[in-house]
């Protein structure tokens, strides 16, 4: 009885603290605005991780604080504690339970990963190019057949976009927090990811990989438009594309020289 009593006490404290901790963790407004189909599953996954994590932390805190409170030495106490060297059953338990927990979380993580990367048949290609210190975009599929160059990212609502990401100089990372997705832009190779916008509006595009002096200011805006308005924008850009395409190349070359 004597040894069971403190464990029941701790269990009670632990359950109450875990419930309070989970409630607090979920009450916090963690995420930026959600504007893609990836946001909901990722936010949900994060919430599940919080729900699993809080009791683990509470367990550690409860045992530590309870032990300090209950087994603290009285002033002048020179005695030793109980010579307990181990307990095989307990050690098997605290290997097995965490193994099951992390395995389950890994499976869940892999399922969400598959979901947010699933290609759609009608995905629209957009080429993204990072250079010190700006992003530029190219739309290869246009009604006129000519690719459209743009310094702003405009996307149609509800349509999957397949970004093909390149870098001209050093590493950059193409991140739209509202979409929850990012990938490095790597000199020499093309990286990719897929996004389906779910909300109209203007969202930050952030460079997340240190790329030099102007890294902090390498921020642009992604605009999500209804499909019809997007088509109009693309047609408008296609009309202006020829002179614009001539202008961008020398302009970007001077940028680069200045940066060096």
């Amino acid at each position: 009885m004597r040894t069971k009593h403190p464990i029941i006490q701790m269990l009670l404290i632990g359950v109450v603290a875990s419930v309070a901790g989970v409630a607090l963790a979920l009450a916090i407004d963690w995420f930026p605005i959600a504007a893609s189909t990836a946001a909901a599953p990722i936010d949900e996954l994060y919430d599940v991780l919080l729900i699993v994590s809080v009791p683990v932390f509470v367990l550690v805190m409860t045992v530590a604080l309870y032990s300090v409170w209950r087994f603290r030495a009285k002033p002048g106490d020179q005695s030793d504690g109980a010579p307990i060297h181990g307990n095989t059953l307990l050690e098997v338990v605290w290997v097995t339970i965490p193994t099951i927990m992390v395995s389950a979380l890994a499976v869940y993580g892999a399922i969400v990963l598959e979901e947010i990367e699933r290609p759609a048949a009608n995905a629209m290609e957009v080429e993204v190019t990072g250079q010190q210190f700006a992003w530029s975009f190219e739309y290869p599929d246009t009604p006129g057949g000519e690719p459209v160059q743009s310094n702003e990212l405009v996307l149609p609502l509800g349509q999957q976009v397949h970004f093909q990401i390149k870098a001209l100089d050093v590493l950059h990372s193409f991140w739209v927090p509202a979409f929850r997705l990012k990938s490095d832009a790597v000199p020499g190779i093309t990286t990719e990811y897929r996004v389906t916008p779910t909300k109209e509006g203007r969202f930050d595009v952030v460079c997340a990989e240190l790329c030099g002096l102007g890294h902090t200011t390498m921020r642009q805006v992604a605009t999500v438009l209804p499909p019809a308005e997007f088509e109009g924008w693309l047609a408008e850009q296609a009309k202006q594309s020829e002179p614009a395409a001539d202008d961008t190349m020398p302009a970007s070359a001077t940028d680069e020289e200045e940066a060096q």
Binding site: S67, V68, F71, A82, I84, W94, P98, S103, A106
Partner: peptide
Amino acid sequence: MITTMLIAIPTGIKIFSWLATLWRGVIHL
């Protein structure tokens, strides 16, 4: 991802063993 999560297990063993070391000790803060 899987190996990274598995490395939490030996680390967890250490945390739990320290907690069990506190249990029924004579703790000097």
